[in-house]
């Protein structure tokens, strides 16, 4: 197991945002965590990346306990995070954004090759290499932060709501890229999504998180009809809402 989040509890002050949740990711897998607003999805990723520290439980990465490590140490260990809201450095140009995470890499010879590959993957970034990243559109910024995370040469990439604020065709493109990266490079992905539909399409396995607790987990293949996922997601029985009434 590459990443093992074991029974963690995370507090904001006295409020428990996560209450003993467990998530695992195998090497090469795509795992999605879905859930409604305020479920604790972002909190889960922030706890993995060392921004938040669990008050209980363990986070093990590649056999090493990383709970309590600093974000930079977690990044160096090989977990790259694309947080909610993109977070490009607007005053740095596109190339500076892309390269900033390469400084911690030890395989210096590989960096230029990876850099070229990222520009091939996102030709629009190549064109706008010298422009301040703040000038990019939302979709381009999403490409930029994915490229930036890739350039840290991560063992696992975690992404928080890659579809946030993007037009549907751009969301499709982002997921195409993510699936392609897994296919071609065996990239391991932990994706947070609000849309369970999207998650069911992309993921190998799925967790439904609500109110700081895991409500359901399973293989995406076993959950394709969506009924159990919807129930876990909303926390009430099917039939209270009519099929198709809830858009997600």
């Amino acid at each position: 197991m590459l990443l093992d989040v074991d029974n963690i509890t995370v507090h904001y002050g006295r409020l428990a945002a996560l209450r003993g949740i467990s998530v695992t990711v195998e090497e090469g897998e795509i795992v999605c965590v879905v859930g409604p607003n305020g479920a604790g999805k972002s909190t889960t990723l922030l706890a993995i990346s060392g921004v938040l520290h669990p008050t209980d439980g363990a986070v093990t990465f590649d056999g090493k306990n990383i709970a309590g490590m600093s974000p930079e140490a977690v990044a160096r260990a090989g977990i790259s995070q694309v947080p909610e809201g993109r977070h490009v450095f607007t005053t740095l140009n596109v190339e500076e954004n892309l390269r900033i995470g390469t400084r911690m890499r030890k395989d210096r010879a590989e960096i230029e090759k990876d850099y070229k590959r990222v520009l091939e993957l996102f030709p629009v970034l190549a064109e706008r290499r010298r422009q301040p990243a703040g000038k990019l559109s939302g979709g381009e910024q999403q490409m930029l932060v994915i490229g930036r995370a890739l350039l840290t040469s991560p063992r696992i990439m975690t992404i928080d709501e890659p579809s946030l604020g993007l037009a549907p065709n751009l969301v499709d493109r982002v997921y195409e890229v993510l699936l392609e990266l897994r296919r071609n490079r065996g990239l391991t992905l932990l994706i947070v999504e609000q849309s369970s539909e999207r998650a069911l399409k992309a993921a190998d396995r799925l967790y439904v998180l609500r109110s700081g607790e895991i409500q359901l987990e399973g293989k995406a293949a076993d959950l394709q009809d969506g009924k159990r996922v919807r129930q876990a997601y909303f926390g009430f029985e099917e039939g209270v809402t009519h099929e198709g009434e809830v858009d997600f």
Partner: peptide
């Protein structure tokens, strides 16, 4: 500009 993001990219 974004201290937390910089750290998540390995900046000490």
């Amino acid at each position: 500009e974004d201290f937390r993001m910089a750290r998540m990219l390995g900046v000490n």
